[in-house]
Amino acid sequence: MSPLPWRTDPRTRLAACAALSIMAALLVRPIHLFGLAGLSACLFAASRPAPRIAGGLAVILAVTTLGSALSQGFFYAPPGRTELFTPIPGLSLCREGLVYGLVQSSRLWVGLLSGAAVIRTTTTSELLLAMQAFRAPWPFTFMVIVGLRFLPEMLEQTRRVLAAQAVRGVSGSGPGAAFRRYRLLLTPLLVAGIRRARQTALAAEARGFGPGRVASRRLRFGAVDLMALAAMAAGLAWAAWSAARAGGVTIGGIT
């Protein structure tokens, strides 16, 4: 039997990711944030990621957490801060900021983990159906679908052009050389990409891929979807109530 995230409607998956991200922005208490991050981790685990993908995401989460802790360690300024390290006068790393940054990084985990779960379980055609069902403007739908189709190709093409440049002797280090390589990279990359994309667009248009397209598959909400949507609505209402009760965050800092 396929895992639960795969059995839900793609609209439910997208809505779940959006709901979790909104809740992560609204909630204030660390225990709630870590609970939300735990729920997102469960969703990601349920998508049965390969060890390589889970490892890659773990690296991204670690870098994000470190960045959040360090930036707030230096910049978060609660009264009576405990200074740990002062690299330059006036800029010091404080313990309270490090802890604060670590806690706040859980907001980023929610987005990254739930987003990874959605990406792993949603195909491009399901995304197209969901965007049409959500009545997303056609130009955006078209661009996202073509973009998803061309992204891997663009990365591959970038590697090829860089390799060709290296063979032709475009080398050197430092900002000047990097800038020159960047300028030399753009023209072939764009011209080849635009040519392929226009051909694809014309072929798609000729086959009736347009705003009035009628899909052969229809999306339907099942019992699991309805339960998930009810849970999301309840979660969002609770997060809004919790944020209002906590007094929220003022421009100057945490109240």
């Binding site: 870098v63 960045g67 360090l70 073509v146 994309a197």
Partner: peptide
Amino acid sequence: PFTAAQLATLSVLVCLMHVSVMPWRIGLAK
């Protein structure tokens, strides 16, 4: 309205914009 060719051109640029900012999205922005 935009033509399919115009949307395709913009899609390629969107891809390129995304490829350019990818390293910064995984934490190098710090």
